[in-house]
Design a protein around this nucleic acid. Structure first.
Lengths: 202, 202, 202, 202
DNA sequence: GCTTAATCGAGACGGTACGTCGCGTCTTACG
DNA sequence: CGTAAGACGCGACGTACCGTCTCGATTAAGC
């Protein structure tokens, strides 16, 4: 009859609940990982009722997705200098991220596992991966433009070749990659140009 | 000597149960995927009691791991030829492994996540990773020995640089790396040594 | 006199809400029965907000009670004639009430159970019982006054003796007492006076 | 294949669980009534897991039914003497039953409410009611046979007329009927037959 | 072949978490 | 103000699997 909330303002309670839940979700993800994350635990931790959580998110996957997207971090801007230094700088930052205990990256394994079970999480995982690769890609693309790297360089593949080993080390060898290993990696992976200008495309 | 059954022959019942369970596990993995795989379902499908399954395997991850390692073990043997070709061959095998629908690789995400929360699983994860890297390491070590690669090459890092991008692609971009991308990867990653003038493009 | 709205006219909105709710309540009672009746459903059906319903009634029992007493209030007025006929008439009305599909009687079991554990509900239960016994008591009291019944008759006990079997039948045997059983009941229960004057008091 | 438990002996664990659950159920029925009885509470009280309860009983109705039937009481045998005395004795026993704190009758309100929710409970309720009426019926039938009561007496109706007021008093007036009210009830309800002139007031 | 002890199936058990429902309270904005 | 709309904390629902644990019944092994 009446009482239709034509208001453009949303109920503050909703936002409050949302926030509490997302905080609790990220905390728990860090503590126990995705697969052992429980809606029940999120409810208990956040002080928000289970039914309210289900009122806002269809399930665990969507909740975690939302948690990641909402609490997304700000990326560092590419530093100046020659390619090798710039790449090394970006990678060093990455390495430190993977080591830091309270960083979003701690949740990576959970994210990987989640992505395996749901297309939504897979999309999120891919998006996050791409976004976090942006600075590196930019450095490489710039280098291609300035001629520091061959014009036919597949910067996507190159970025993966740089980041891959670091991630691999973290995930499987479970050894925190140290910053002083980065130069070797860069040296070994980046194509040597300049005096070697005669490389022909495949 | 004594009453202890020192026999090297194991009880055929055990082997029979094991076999039924592993078959059922692989079947179910193909049908419902890893995350929806249930010990209960494996028991029902295999006709083997739940308690018997738990008698043989500590949990789901180990069961699935065992299922793959036992039934689908296909350690690619190092092929003959120049390094680049041999590396390419190993990587191609790896790429195909990651693409196969019911392969050990499909537990990888679960393994990664599990390793994050239990030392035992971390050990298993590391061991499996190392084992599956053995063929590649062997090829690289051989190449160092024959002089095809510089004597100071860090073959561990090099192996990671080769495998890393593939795994990264699988886990984050969630794009099945194709076999025809392997040559580019090898070309870009393996150091170009000495004269090696006789190399012809693929 | 003062600012207080002493008006004997009540807010028409209240009356409108009340009416809608009571209608919906009775409808739903007929459709799904008492135990499956839901305040939520009443709100949805009536278009009245849940909070409004709770503003007017403490709970389901009171709502249903009110629905019947308000909408179906048909206090049978004592008919004229000899006691036996008048009693029979009242009891027949009662019997029919207990048989009607969506009648107050359907709350009776819930009321009994509730009364067992809450003083408030016990009071309500008692009040309703007394109120619904009023017509019968009046007939009996009148009969005592006119000499149709002995002057020392315990009309309370007598009323219970008349109503008891009917209620008992409804609650335990769960057989809808038929109207044609009433005369037998009356005949058997009411003391025979007149030609049997020699009855001595207890 | 094998392992079929052809044993006629039942698992003792089942019987143990059953017993604990039924005890807890009756206790809770007494304390909170049928409608407020909760499977969850039964589980907590009995120390038996919820899932085990659901393994044995489809739902609350069946559980309560089982509780009642299992814990059925033994009925008192009809005493000797003249009808009035015998009836009075039976009714006195009934009255005491309704007052006793640890008796099945304490649960009558719950039973009534439960009967309203399901045909099974209704059947049970009826059966229990009939069984508990047996002694009284027997006394009345005997009296008809010996001529103490008119041969055309409807003993069923008569029994209800005797029991009805007592139950009514208990359920609605919520007054524990005292044993000394029984004689008046009997006097008022039982038909005065034949000459029987020698009756002296109590 | 005849024990005897290992192994088995069946499935009951105490649990944990699920996702849903309805409760009764409370908040917001409207008329 | 009383209201419609509906968010909220809460508690119970009935289900699905978990991993543990008796149970006999069934074998395979060693006497």
């Amino acid at each position: 009859m009446d009482g239709v909330p034509v208001s453009d303002e949303i109920d503050p309670r909703i936002e409050r609940s949302r926030h509490h839940v997302l905080i609790a979700t990220v905390d728990l993800l860090r503590e126990v990982g995705y697969s052992r994350l429980t809606i029940e635990a999120v409810a208990a931790r956040s002080g928000v009722a289970k039914s309210t959580i289900y009122r806002h998110w269809p399930g665990k996957v969507e909740l975690v997705t939302d948690a990641f997207t909402t609490l997304q971090r700000r990326d560092a801007e590419p530093p100046p200098g020659p390619v090798r230094d710039r790449v090394a700088a970006v990678l060093t930052g990455m390495v430190e991220s993977l080591t830091a205990p309270a960083h979003l990256a701690c949740v990576m394994p959970a994210l990987i596992d989640a992505a395996e079970h749901s297309p939504e999480m897979a999309m999120l995982s891919g998006r996050l991966a791409e976004e976090s690769a942006v600075p590196l890609r930019k450095v490489l693309d710039d280098a291609v433009e300035t001629g520091e790297l061959p014009p036919d360089t597949d910067t996507g593949l190159l970025a993966d070749s740089l980041v891959g080993p670091i991630v691999l080390c973290r995930l499987f060898h479970r050894r925190p990659v140290t910053a002083d290993e980065v130069p070797t990696l860069v040296e070994q992976t980046l194509p040597h140009v300049g005096p070697v200008p005669t490389r022909s495309p495949a």
